[in-house]
């Protein structure tokens, strides 16, 4: 037999052992079976894009969370476990369309997303702000004050700012298209550099100047 140690040690096995050939396959099979039995409350995957690694998470209702490259992915998953359900599994095959559309968007070959979304992580006024953001078209921008007015509460400019800052679905819900009334960038959870880059990508080359 392989010459490592005592019978007891052989039974315990070694952490790095090659065994683990079957595990990736078994885990993929588990995700598929869990989804089939309605036990997969949150599926997730990570994708590599020109702006960095994104984490995508979805409930059976649709895409529920996109974490931008500056976010701690483990922390995001831990939050999803608390806020939605701990029944979370890696299931890349469920994100083929989302990954493709995001890739196309970031390479300028897509101007709008055709994905089911689940806004359960935003409630009340914040959710209505996110719905308003979906109305801002590719290449266009709006001010925080305009979004506040469109959301039915013209004085809630700061609340619009915090709805944008806590947008669970950046890129797809285009909070990067919201600027200050004077045309300066305002904020962005993914970092101002990324906000500027997205606006430039969409043709707003003077953004934030």
């Amino acid at each position: 037999m392989t010459g490592y140690g005592t019978v007891e040690e052989m039974l315990v096995g070694e952490d790095g052992e090659a065994v683990m050939g079957p595990l990736p396959r078994l885990r993929a099979r588990l995700s598929a079976a869990a989804a089939g039995e309605g036990l997969l409350d949150v599926a997730y995957c990570t994708i590599d894009t020109p702006i960095g690694s994104l984490l995508l998470a979805a409930t059976p209702d649709g895409l529920v969370r996109i974490a931008l490259p500056n976010e701690d992915q483990e922390r995001v998953l831990a939050e999803l476990a608390v806020r939605i359900s701990p029944r979370i599994l890696n299931a890349p095959s469920r994100f083929d369309q989302a990954a493709r559309e995001i890739g196309e968007y970031l390479s300028r070959s897509r101007r709008s997303f055709d994905l089911a979304i689940d806004l359960r992580l935003a409630s009340g006024f914040r959710r209505s702000v996110l719905r308003q953001l979906l109305e801002i078209e590719y290449g266009a921008t709006a001010s925080y004050a305009q979004v506040a007015a469109a959301s039915g509460n013209p004085r809630a400019v700061r609340a619009v700012g915090s709805a944008c800052a806590t947008n669970p679905l950046p890129l797809v819900v285009p909070c990067h298209r919201v600027l200050r009334s004077d045309g300066t960038l305002g904020g962005y959870a993914g970092g101002l550099q990324l906000k500027r880059r997205l606006l430039e990508l969409e043709g707003q080359s003077e953004a934030g100047q």
Partner: peptide
Amino acid sequence: MSLPPFDD
């Protein structure tokens, strides 16, 4: 203390 994601 809360439950970690099942994936972990």
